[in-house]
Design a protein around this nucleic acid. Sequence first.
DNA 1: TAGTCGACTACACGCACGTATAGGACTTCG
DNA 2: CGAAGTCCTATACGTGCGTGTAGTCGACTA
Lengths: 202, 202
Amino acid sequence: MNDLTARARIRDAAIKLFTERGMEKTSILDIAEEAGVSGGLIRHHFGSKDGLREACDTYVFDELMKFKEEALAKGEADPGFVPTFDPRQLLFRRYLGRAMIDGSAAAAAQFTEIVDGTERWFREQGLGMPDPRACAAALAAMTGGMMILQDHVARALGEEPGTHEAMLRMSLAAGYLFTHPLAAPEALKKASESLAAYRRKG
Amino acid sequence: MNDLTARARIRDAAIKLFTERGMEKTSILDIAEEAGVSGGLIRHHFGSKDGLREACDTYVFDELMKFKEEALAKGEADPGFVPTFDPRQLLFRRYLGRAMIDGSAAAAAQFTEIVDGTERWFREQGLGMPDPRACAAALAAMTGGMMILQDHVARALGEEPGTHEAMLRMSLAAGYLFTHPLAAPEALKKASESLAAYRRKG
DNA sequence: TAGTCGACTACACGCACGTATAGGACTTCG
DNA sequence: CGAAGTCCTATACGTGCGTGTAGTCGACTA
């Protein structure tokens, strides 16, 4: 097959299929076929399907952490939403999004960590945000949404899913949206007032 | 139970559980229990699990369309990302996000429609966007992400999931992000150049 | 050569779930 | 009254999947 150990092939196949289909729709046998091994071997190495999931989680999160530390070492600020085209990093980010939906506790912890980091970055920037934590959380959800829904985005753009072109257009668009106000702050003020009114009503 | 017909109760229960857990993790029996009926009755009314899903899809999308037309009738511009606190509308939006992940063809069509509408709105506003369609798609993915990941957002904010408070803080934060530039356009320019360089490399 | 250990496979078990069927209760209409 | 139709339940069937077990193969060691 290739020169990776069977254990690594299983892990990679699981990451790929979990990301594409989600955990429920992926059977052990699907993973085994993708990895070119028998179903029993997965059990031998990982104990159970949940064990395999946990192994994938920790592997992916470790790799993402490595990417982050690399970026920080290079002096690039990494608030988590910096676009990338590295295929592995893209896959892992998407895996993370999928894991959040599938209800992984580890992924939930990751989300909080990302929010923490982004909030810290916001505060360091000294932007006069009224609620930096909420902004960080919203931003994390937004970038997560783009990772999770990237195939829909690509389709809407008439691009092939997973291509660089689709990713590029989406990333640039996101960058544009985050650097150019969609509406004047007055519009926000008006909206927040009506929302606050709703809150008072309960 | 209540005064809804069993058919409606089944539909509502399915929408609720599909939204919360996703389609795979929800069994017919779960829905039956939630609706207070037997499993067989679901088959009687909807033929199969997939039939039930389709019925939920069309119902939810019809209702969302009604909300949209209502808003338009009231003269409010509805580019799809206007925040709301109407519980039914919130539920339906979240259902839509979930359906996109679960691979519903109807939901995919909805996504495209939302992008179409948003793109049209962008063009009407006369903002000088370089790629209005990509911006519309990215914005749709972002708002979808907030719907899908709202429980994670609430947790990160220390709020109870599903409460008005959590939704309010997230909506206001999103509004802030869309009306205040996170960075100067020059930063975007620099980023797009490095992305474009990547594109040339392949 | 014999023995041990880990990698790996084949196969059977059991459960959960979607599907199918038969029949009961209640309403409607000739 | 009774026949027909509808709403609804109880129960059985088949299947796919996660899990458990037994056993083979090859490498390494003494």
